[in-house]
Simulated scan of single mutants.
Amino acid sequence: MREISVIGGGSWATALVKILAENKIRVYWYLRRQLQVEAITREGSNPDYISFAKLDTDYIEASTDLADVLSKCQHILFVVPSAHLPAVCQQIDPDQMDNKIIISSIKGTVGPDNLLPSSFLAKSFGALQLNQAILAGPCHAEEIAVGKKTYMTVCAGDPLLRTALSNAFGSNYVQIRESQDLIGVEYAAIFKNVVGLVCGMAKGTNYGDNFIAVLVANAIHELEMLLHALGLDSVQIGSSSYLGDLFVTAYSQHSRNRTFGVLIGQGYSVEQTKDTMSMVAEGYTATKGLHDMATARGLNMPILNTAYRVLYNYMPVKTEFKLLERSMI
């Protein structure tokens, strides 16, 4: 792979662009704001997200022209918040996506049908499964920005596509794990954001490390339950693609979902928390999507239920956590 189009201008998109440019992959990068484009072109950094990340502009062409960016090459990487994906796709002529390789690195369910991002993109553009891939963690943009050791999962049904993406994103500090489990890894990436929120709530309400450790252990059980309900009984849940991403989101100071939960635990309302944070916490919308799906399948997932009742039924955090304590195993 020598070139790729990237759709999205947030911190995760910026981190991925950084890796690609370092690997001398030409990046055609769509961003919504002209000020971002000008700053990236002039200064080699994204002024709005992880601005300390240095970008090699010799390999980056930033633009606010979505159609032009899509026309540049065959591989298209979507890195936008799940809530914004439908609006982005509505701006795209489906004919422009014929025979494109569609790559997703989005960690939330999409739309009223609670679709996986890869499923939504396939439905929007008629993409074949062999022409799709996903990128997952465990990794945080902030650590990629400063070149700290990072692990990433590349999922695709086509082995040649997996190899191409592994070469494009692997580096001396990014180690790639390849997988064919698009569904399992994508659901795990979505669920871990909910876990990060609840761990943050626990921290915000002054629970200690002991309780949070038990909370995470129970979250692993809930993830297994979810994956089995999807027919993924052979998944090796102990691998970094599943639990590594969950752990880093639950414990890291860089986790925006954990930060969102901390503020909720400290008494902020959902709207106040959204206003306070400059970045989207995917776990908020993911909570509703996964809760709807789990309810429809008759799954009892106490951690997911707690997140839903606090965020969408506006139940008191402390009351809900007292109930959650009783369900921990």
Rank of each mutant, 00 (worst) to 15 (best):
N218R: 06
E22S: 07
R26A: 09
A136T: 08
M225F: 06
S82M: 05
A15P: 00
W12M: 11
L197W: 11
V110N: 10
A15M: 01
V37A: 15
Y284D: 05
L121P: 04
Q266E: 15
I264Y: 08
V27P: 05
A156R: 11
K54E: 10
N210S: 14
K54W: 02
D68H: 14
I220Q: 15
K148V: 06
K318M: 12
N23P: 02
F120C: 14
Y308F: 15
S104H: 03
A53Y: 05
M201A: 11
R309W: 02
I212A: 08
M279T: 08
L161K: 01
V146E: 07
L263S: 10
R162K: 14
D98E: 06
M152D: 00
Y49D: 04
A62S: 10
L70F: 06
Q90L: 10
E222D: 09
E142Y: 01
C139I: 02
T150Y: 02
T295L: 08
M279D: 12
S118W: 07
A145R: 00
D68V: 06
G283K: 10
D275G: 10
G283D: 12
D68L: 13
T57K: 12
G267W: 08
G170Q: 04
P112N: 15
C73S: 13
L290D: 03
T273I: 09
M301E: 08
D65T: 07
A83V: 12
Q266I: 09
M277N: 04
Q175L: 03
D56N: 09
L16C: 00
Y59K: 01
L85Y: 05
T287E: 09
A136P: 01
Q175R: 12
G265R: 10
H75C: 02
G126N: 11
G208D: 15
N167F: 03
A168Y: 00
P117V: 07
I103R: 08
A217N: 15
A39H: 11
F191W: 07
Q96F: 04
I106T: 12
A250H: 11
L35Y: 14
R42A: 03
A281H: 07
L290P: 04
H84N: 08
G289A: 02
R256Q: 15
D65L: 02
W12V: 13
A164D: 08
D158L: 08
